[in-house]
Simulated scan of single mutants.
Amino acid sequence: MVRDAGVRADAGVLESRLTGLGREEFAREVWGRLPSLTRGAGDFSDIFSSAAVDELVSRRGLRTPFLRVAKDGATLPEPSFTAPGGVGATIADQLDDTALWRAFADGATLVLQALHRTWEPVGTFTSRLATELGHPVQANAYVTPPQNQGFDAHYDVHDVFVLQITGTKRWLIHEPVVTAPTREQPWTGHRAAVAEAASGAPVLDTVLEPGDVLYLPRGWLHSAVAQGAVSVHLTLGVHPWTRHALAAQLAETALAALREDPAMRTSLPLGVDGPEGELDEIRARLVTALTTADPAPLFARTRRGQGRPAPLGPLAQLAALDALTDDTHVRLREALEPRLSGERLWTRAGWLDLAPADLPAVHRLLDGEAHATRDLGPALVRRLLRAGVLVPAAP
């Protein structure tokens, strides 16, 4: 599927920056089904650039595994591109920009990993996209010299959006050999099938130019070769929740309940050679536990653990506490994944038990909007600022 981007003024980043499709249309026509190419989606220089690559490699003191180096389908050993940090930085595995330059000049691809943690514009963008999609998103950048290829044909176990930043890259896309693979089904377990499928005619053979976006569902085979200039592309990896994952959490919740059943904790009879004779009762109890299990708390806890809240500056937070007045406006820190369960507020910054009198104010805060301290209560605001749950906001 190939399209030119079209943008509504009130569109989210999925529509305004990536696909030209709203979330519902994208979910109905594309999500998890087919590759989708959007020509001229936009200018991504505000998110990432060649200058950002140079700064990250040469000036930020990055360590492994924030960078991999690949050549001829294999990753190079970390000692070949890392070195001690020097006086005052007793760190043995910081990136060595000289070694990286030599490897790059020799045809190696630089892979900047977890950019959502090291480059603020990418972090902000991935956080917004994750909120829209309801699935965690991470980001890597691939920097490939002209006429070179970092990796052979393979598939990912997560969906990806490929944003071409600079240069051009030819992509060959083939149909999956494993449909919708999970983390436990990586391409390395199907090397022969992947190689055979990649030798056939591709479903899509295209050259991405700056501003183009390619969406690939997990499992679709792909390989890419830089063309006549250095290619920089950003890959946004979407790690989808699956029905299998939800089933696993349902089973885990049910098994936790069965641990509280004394009959299920009793030993099997002496001399038993197999499960026969016990399975009927165990199945019946397991079915009952599955029927009544509520995986929502475990789901929420796991989801919170898959991301981090928005950055929090300790000095700015202390200044906000010191300057707090009734007119100060505050809001929930972004990407907290808040969940109020009874009188306990769960967030990625930890949990807090609340007084019943504070619950109406906390319910108001959950709308994500800015609120005046006088409307919430100074004591509650101070507590939530100290906990890193609230941050100052413009009125």
Rank of each mutant, 00 (worst) to 15 (best):
R285W: 11
G211W: 10
F299L: 15
P295C: 07
P295N: 08
L204H: 04
D327E: 15
T302L: 04
A226P: 00
G228P: 04
L312D: 10
A263F: 06
L216E: 06
H244Q: 07
T325I: 07
R333F: 09
T288R: 08
L255W: 01
G211F: 09
A248G: 14
E334H: 09
L236G: 13
V207R: 07
G307C: 10
R303P: 01
V232Y: 11
V225H: 09
M264F: 12
A251I: 10
P295D: 07
P275I: 05
L312G: 09
D212H: 15
L246S: 08
Q227R: 07
D322L: 11
L345M: 05
G228M: 05
L214C: 14
G274A: 11
G237Y: 06
L298D: 01
L324W: 14
I282E: 01
G274P: 02
T325Y: 07
P338G: 03
W220E: 02
R301G: 04
A316N: 05
L250D: 03
E260Y: 06
M264T: 14
L216N: 13
L298R: 10
R259V: 13
A256S: 13
D261E: 11
P297F: 01
D326V: 14
G237R: 05
A257W: 00
R259T: 15
A296E: 15
F299P: 00
E276K: 01
H239G: 02
M264G: 04
A310N: 02
L221H: 01
L345H: 02
V230N: 12
S223Q: 08
A335N: 11
A335D: 14
D273N: 09
P311K: 05
R259L: 15
V287I: 12
E281A: 15
Y215C: 06
